[in-house]
Design a protein around this nucleic acid. Structure first.
Lengths: 282, 282
DNA sequence: GGGCCGCGATACCTCCCGGGTATCGATCCT
DNA sequence: AGGATCGATACCCGGGAGGTATCGCGGCCC
């Protein structure tokens, strides 16, 4: 199977419409139709059920969609990492580390400093991304290594080492009655009148149903909390960047958050191995 | 990048010889040379350093070799799983489970029976393979799920659930003086005169240097032990299939062996999820 | 219900590019 | 020096990817 065929199929499977898919691919519709039929004939499998009014995925088609996306990511990753390896030989950037904006507050600078002091250290680019994007970036080669937070981020498909574990705190407007308490329980937090937990976007940009304001990043969230419109449960280390009009109270029974360093299971380059070694020794 | 180009590059990178690589690919040498140069031009990267007498990998080339292999595996996996998903809709086999021959003795039949009793269970093919092959089969789509043994097998790149943990025993010829002991330590075993631990093949079929006989499978190994030419440290459950001319003694400080069920992190099909659920409940 | 529209399939053409053969040029080995 | 080895270059051919034109089928609307 050629990646071209796979790209075509993924486009059609996502659009469920040959015309739109062809447009997205920058080609005419007939060759696309033909390419898909050829692919089906070669695989000996029907991927799409088409009437002249609608296109739907068969079971095999939906398997090929998810597996094919992963395969295309892997091909892209190979290409990107090879290209970067050539640059790294001459100059910058040797490694790309990705993490969520506003997370891993003090750990990251410590890690970068410690690694830079190592003999043979290469340049490390830091890439800040939105919620849940790290895994994609790691899989398609735009990043080499990530700082993730279990259990929020999944380390499925990656090698990982635990770095540190911390409890969680609830962030409230300064002066809220509960800020007088030394600690709370999740039951106290979920029952807070007028201060619902926010809703984070799914990977596709849509929001889950339910109460609570929609937020896209930490700055928005903190603003909303300061306005008395929301509360949030965050890792303890968020205290480092808390605005003075906010207060944090430990939540005893919130799940502990573990910061891990994760990387794709191949690509065990010297540079990456060095960075991981430094990280685990911190 | 097309998979064709990637296959070509991997062949040349492995052979380090355009002529042989072309032969392996079933094509002439000139188009292969041209394809590789085109790939290099498109990537903007030198992958191979060639003189008229030798071919060597650049840094970028060696990155592309490992990443490219993984990418090709992923593409193959997508193809195979799509093809199998179509079969599963009509008939056999719905899932392919791979494990080492001679391992997971009693667990496997229990798992298969329990899963078969589930409502909506699909047919499960069992694939027995040699040491260290499971990961490859899982990655390139010939298998959907594997029983692995940590710390011997790596679960890097897969999702996994622990099933059970057991100690290890040393297997000796029946009647050997040490079989009278209730338990041993690793130091006793490694120092055994005339009964060295065997050498298992690497992934490429070569054997590591050192003393001890070369073995390829458990039958060979047990035969050698019965002959008084070797000993071996194996998980406790091997007692189930021990020949009467062999004896086993627990080794207290040998690392514990954990049997895990592992699967690729996408492909969370209903059938697979069901099998995993049954496995963790055993 | 007949005509229209939307959409995928088919027919047919063109041209690019992947693959072949012949040959060159460089390097190493007698 | 001369032959052998091996990758690069030159040139040719055929298949197939992509384009345009058109068909056929099924909703939909007046």
């Amino acid at each position: 199977m050629e990646t071209r065929e796979l790209r075509y199929f993924v486009a059609v499977a996502e659009e469920l419409h040959f015309g739109r898919a062809a447009q997205r691919l920058g080609m005419a519709q007939p060759p696309l139709s033909r390419a898909i039929s050829q692919l089906e004939r070669r695989l000996g499998v029907t991927l799409l059920e088409r009437t002249s009014r609608s296109v739907t995925l068969t079971e095999a088609g939906s398997v090929l969609l998810t597996e094919g996306r992963a395969a295309l990511d892997a091909v892209e990753a190979a290409e990107r990492r090879a290209r970067r390896a050539a640059l790294a030989a001459t100059g910058r950037p040797g490694l790309v580390l990705v993490t969520k904006a506003g997370a891993a507050g003090e750990l990251l600078p410590k890690l970068l400093d410690a690694y830079a002091a190592e003999p043979g250290a290469v340049a490390v680019d830091v890439l800040l991304c939105g919620i849940g994007e790290q895994e994609r970036l790691l899989r398609d080669g735009r990043a080499d290594v990530a700082l993730l937070h279990r259990p929020f981020d999944s380390t499925a498909g990656f090698d990982a080492e635990e770095l540190c574990t911390e409890g969680q705190v609830v962030v409230l407007p300064a002066g809220h009655p509960l800020t007088a308490r030394a600690h709370l329980r999740m039951a106290d937090v979920t029952a807070l009148p007028g201060l619902p937990l926010p809703r984070w976007p799914n990977l596709d940009g849509t929001y889950p149903d339910g109460p609570g304001p929609q937020v896209r990043d930490h700055a928005q969230l903190l603003q909303l909390i300061a306005l008395g419109r929301a509360s949030a449960v965050l890792p303890e280390s968020c205290r480092a960047y808390l605005r003075p009009d906010l207060a944090a109270v430990p939540v005893l029974d919130a799940p502990a958050v573990t910061t891990v360093i994760a990387w794709p299971p191949h690509s065990r380059s010297r540079a990456l191995a060095g960075l991981v070694r430094v990280a685990t020794r911190l």
